[in-house]
């Protein structure tokens, strides 16, 4: 039984546990050295595409308004306690044993970090 499962048994609700677990996974994984700068590199067109992607495609599980669905809600109050790095890790590598898929290959680290920052302050319309 991994630390992941132990956590799941003691804390509820499960969605939050999975976020926490993903964060722990992140802590033991390699640091995202390049993720810090980057954000300014994305041009306005790509930023618009990412907002669209999050609303429409992430939205199929998290809701178009990000109020949640089969997936967790992703509004600022919901992600305020999750560090940027953990969010980036979840976006790029997914969350094991849940339907959250890894977006690595479809999104760069820079893009994932930009999305994470937007989620924290509230995604533009």
């Amino acid at each position: 039984m991994s630390i992941y499962h132990t956590l799941q048994l003691h804390l509820l609700p499960p969605d939050r546990v999975k976020l926490a677990a993903a964060f722990i996974v992140f802590l033991f994984s390699s640091p995202l050295a390049t993720a810090q700068e980057g954000a300014s590199v994305l041009d306005a067109k790509r930023q618009n595409e990412l907002v669209y992607l999050v609303r429409q495609d992430c939205g199929s599980c998290h809701g178009m308004t990000l109020k949640g669905g089969l997936g967790t809600p992703l509004l600022p109050p919901n992600v305020k306690d999750t560090p940027i790095e953990a969010l980036v890790s979840i976006i790029l590598d997914g969350v094991p044993d849940t339907p959250m898929p890894p977006w690595r290959g479809l999104l760069s680290e820079t893009e994932a970090e930009w999305i994470a920052r937007q989620l924290k302050k509230g995604l533009p319309e």
Binding site: D57, S60, C61, L70, G94, P99, P101, P102, L106
Partner: peptide, 13 residues
């Protein structure tokens, strides 16, 4: 089903 095959990521249910 699909035993032994690598599972691919699912971007929409």
């Amino acid at each position: 089903y699909g035993k032994g095959e690598k599972k691919l990521p699912v971007y929409k249910m």
